[in-house]
């Protein structure tokens, strides 16, 4: 890395210039060293992710209860989903997670900042591809009259319970999509900071935290695939 001003970040993402010597960033006042600073912030991120798990957990709980009550309606609702699109989206998110992991690898091995930015860009683009495919799926549900409130045309015995499945489908995929949008925005910020040379092999904590968030959102989708798309043929 060329000599440039080194900016360790605190948890809020503030930057402040620090006198540096060589490639070693200085920790903030309250920390003994960079390792402790990094470990503390990553630990905080994990606690946040566990609160996120509880947020999604409430949705998973509702899903479990109503699927136990109306298994046939959930199987019927599941057959209205497009497995090809769901499968493609799963692959898209998995590859995007690989890109994030490769970006962190690039940051830690002193690769060129353009290389780091490119991996992040690839992940963000894949995130957007996911959102576009998801939006197309929503559009199809609207067209087919499978969208509660906006356009619901299914009638007959048990249609109300199928609607319940679709309420949960939109709530779960919707909350997931909101999270992914936040993830894409975060990665966008990381691209700018990478290009500004904010990250060093020993100062990449914001990148690590963004990565943890991205992978968490990926894991949520990995469970949504079998729960929503793969209930019964």
């Amino acid at each position: 890395m060329a000599e440039s001003s080194l900016r360790p970040m605190n948890a809020l993402g503030d930057t402040h210039s620090v006198e540096t010597s060589g490639a070693h960033a200085a920790p903030d006042l309250q920390f003994e060293n960079l390792e402790q600073q990094h470990a503390t912030r990553v630990f905080g991120m994990w606690i946040f992710l566990v609160t996120e798990l509880m947020l999604f957990g409430a949705l998973f709980l509702m899903y479990t209860v109503y699927r136990a009550f109306y298994p046939a309606a959930f199987a019927e609702g599941s057959r209205h989903l497009d497995l090809a699109l769901g499968g493609i989206n799963t692959a898209v998110l998995i590859v995007s997670s690989l890109c994030i992991a490769l970006a962190i690898h690039a940051a830690r091995t002193s690769a060129k900042r353009s290389q780091l930015a490119l991996w992040l860009l690839a992940a963000a683009v894949l995130g957007i591809v996911f959102m576009v495919i998801k939006g197309y799926e929503y559009f199809l549900h609207y067209q087919n009259g499978e969208m509660p409130v906006f356009n619901w045309t299914l009638t007959g015995a048990g249609a109300g319970h199928v609607q319940l499945f679709f309420w949960l489908y939109f709530a779960m995929t919707g909350v997931h999509a909101i999270h992914l949008s936040i993830g894409i925005a975060l990665v966008g910020i990381m691209i700018l900071r990478a290009l500004l040379g904010n990250f060093k092999p020993n100062a990449y904590t914001p990148l690590e935290m963004t990565g943890l968030y991205w992978h968490f959102v990926d894991i949520i989708w990995i469970f949504l695939l079998p729960l929503l798309y793969l209930i019964a043929r």
Binding site: S97, L98, I100, A101, G211, L212, H215, F216, D218, I219, I222, F223
Partner: peptide, 10 residues
């Protein structure tokens, strides 16, 4: 799949 992501990516 979740375990793989947790162990290696995270």
């Amino acid at each position: 799949k979740a375990v793989l992501i947790l162990l290696f990516f995270m």
